[in-house]
Nucleic acid binder design. Structure first.
Lengths: 205, 205
DNA sequence: TAGATTGTTAATCGATTAACAATC
DNA sequence: TAGATTGTTAATCGATTAACAATC
């Protein structure tokens, strides 16, 4: 809806939602901005500002209605009809991510896995069928997949990205340490554990 | 050395270093700021500004000497005597990360793994010995470990963080989706794949 | 030299925080 | 009401980009 939210706000909304779902499970129905802030180790102002962005308002000063807020976050973050995701590379990391998502988020579904190892083709990994990478185009079309997760070894990263782009993928989540080049129209998010660990090491000094 | 660099600069320096190592392998000896920028899909100004921060200067306008630059980045990012790292939680993700780092960075070494599954205790995972979580304090002291990676299931995340902090860990890399509370003196870095994927999904819309 | 490249200051952009009026 | 909480504007902080003089 309307313009795009700031990146950081989007990240936090995703995090808030999970905390709120937990609160619901614990039987809570209302939550103050400072409570939510405390759960995430940030300030109450920041929480309120994020909430401002999504246009949810709370007339009575009795805290936010948790269920309602989850709905509103869903309206902002989620796509109406669900998004199908493919994962390329079924090593340990690919497997970890696939099982992690397996049946969790209702709107984001990993519906296909790809690899080039014959032993993995035609098996089911955490409920997700594994195909040979050569079938990428066909399956992406058949299953209406719009996001690709890259968990291949470094040497295959660039080619994998190219393939994903050429078959019309709109967003890529890259878990390799290889910088990727994508056209304007494709959204790219990188997560590189070497960099993360080196960063921790630097700031620990 | 001296004051701390900006977070983003630290991240990019880690990334530059890997590209530079690749360039060395390809037989390159000098690299222009715009070449390095191109490899990372950023601007040449940004590269030069980052290099400015680490105080490396290149008098002749013939590009940066790659070997020298790798050294300088190492002086800034790396600790003199190497840093020992522990990983807690040897599921698929823990295994993926452990094998990934296995023998890669010389200054950052995963020297111990921890789990609570009796089948895993006393085995070797990608060259790293696995201990029972109850031995955490002892091993951290023995092996002089200062960073902990958390890859346990969500339900154990908070307790794992507490244990790591109580045994004197200085930095935590948290791969669970659970927000953690750490004292000032501990550096915390989070990497949450649910948030990352939801972010891609949002910006793809 | 002229063109390409660099280092650095100033300007801009984006994200966080402070301040505060409004409301229950 | 008085105290707690909220929504929002203005100020600050941090990171990126534009501009440009200096140099090979």
């Amino acid at each position: 809806m309307e313009g795009k939210l700031p990146e950081k706000t989007v990240e936090r909304l995703s995090e808030y939602r999970r905390s709120l779902l937990n609160c619901l499970l614990e039987g809570k129905t209302y939550i103050f901005s400072h409570e939510l802030a405390r759960l995430h180790n940030i300030t109450a102002v920041q929480v309120r500002r994020d909430i401002m962005f999504i246009g949810y308002s709370n007339a009575q000063r009795k805290g936010y209605e948790i269920k309602e807020m989850i709905n509103v976050i869903g309206k902002v973050l989620d796509s109406n009809d669900g998004i199908n995701v493919a994962i390329v590379g079924i090593g340990n990391l690919g497997r970890a991510i696939t099982s992690y998502f397996s049946g969790k988020r209702s709107k984001l579904n990993i519906v296909a896995a790809f690899d080039n190892d014959p032993d993995k083709i035609d098996t089911i990994i955490a409920g997700v069928p594994c195909f040979h990478i050569s079938q990428l185009g066909q399956i992406v079309k058949e299953k209406n997949i719009s996001i690709g997760i890259i968990t291949v070894p470094s040497d295959y990263a660039v080619d994998t990205a190219k393939s994903l782009i050429s078959v019309g993928i709109k967003g890529i989540l890259n878990f390799t340490s290889v910088p990727l080049n994508v056209p304007e129209s494709v959204y790219l998010e990188n997560s590189d554990m070497i960099t993360l660990l080196e960063k921790v090491a630097y700031f620990v000094k």
